[in-house]
Amino acid sequence: MFQSVIDSPRRHGVIDVRLRRTLWGVAGLASSIIAVVVAVVATEALPALRGVELPRFLNDPSWHPTNQRYNLAPMIAGTFLVAGGAVALGTLFGFLSAIFCCFYAPPRLAGLYRGVMELLAGIPSVILGLWGLTTLVPIVAAIKAPGFSVLSATLVLGLMIVPTIGLVAIASLQSVPRSLILGAEALGLPKWLTVVRIAFPAARSGLIASVVLGIGRALGETMAVMMVGGNIVQVPESLFAPVRTLAANIALEIPYAEGLHRSSLFVSGLFLTLVILVVLCIAEWLGPEPIHD
């Protein structure tokens, strides 16, 4: 109401119009960045998209881009495998953490644990990778060599997305109307049933969105996975086999790649971006709130 009084065009002086124009220019610049990013990556990917037929990225004999063999399938498989495992772990622990904070923990403890998750979310992925490399990989190697494996990558990545999923899940569980919970309690429903049958369905869209957000994060993560995954180009046949993801492939090869090789790495980057954007669109569509952070 008051906004409209201030907004009335009569009160806009020349200065205000000028500021408004400047701000539109700045905002236009900021929002055109995504177009530039996509355009640049697509342009760089174009030679490979033209020179290599699209199916060849999936059914070439191998990934030897210097010998015109462009099979990205092992990396795609590795990416989805590691991300899938990590999201499963992250969802389990993230949801349990959220339930703990919202329904079981005394308020002080809940706040404290929330703080732990926020700090965990703040640890740079390169440090988690270093920890995985020097601590987790030897432990996994003691079970079965070489230690650089799907398992290590999944565990580190899962750890990274527990706070992503947990913190969003807490927010969405907290937004469940208090009356629903109190009503369930008044009916004598055990706490566990209250959580599973009342709170979860009520917070469903937010919980799904939290998982989807975790998927997006897991697919795009590079450093930690690269440091503990072993990076051998193969479709891993067991949990203990080394794995290379699409993002790790880009990071490993871009420094020396040239020509179609370089271009095919941009193709994989474009593919990764598109997959993540589709995933985030689903989240946006399901989620009640914009959730990009």
């Binding site: 990556v41 990071a251 971006t273 954007l277």
Partner: peptide
């Protein structure tokens, strides 16, 4: 801006 926030950091590197 939401779409920009979704782009993975490795692609920003590219």
């Amino acid at each position: 801006l939401d779409v920009l926030a979704g782009v993975p950091s490795i692609v920003f590197g590219l």
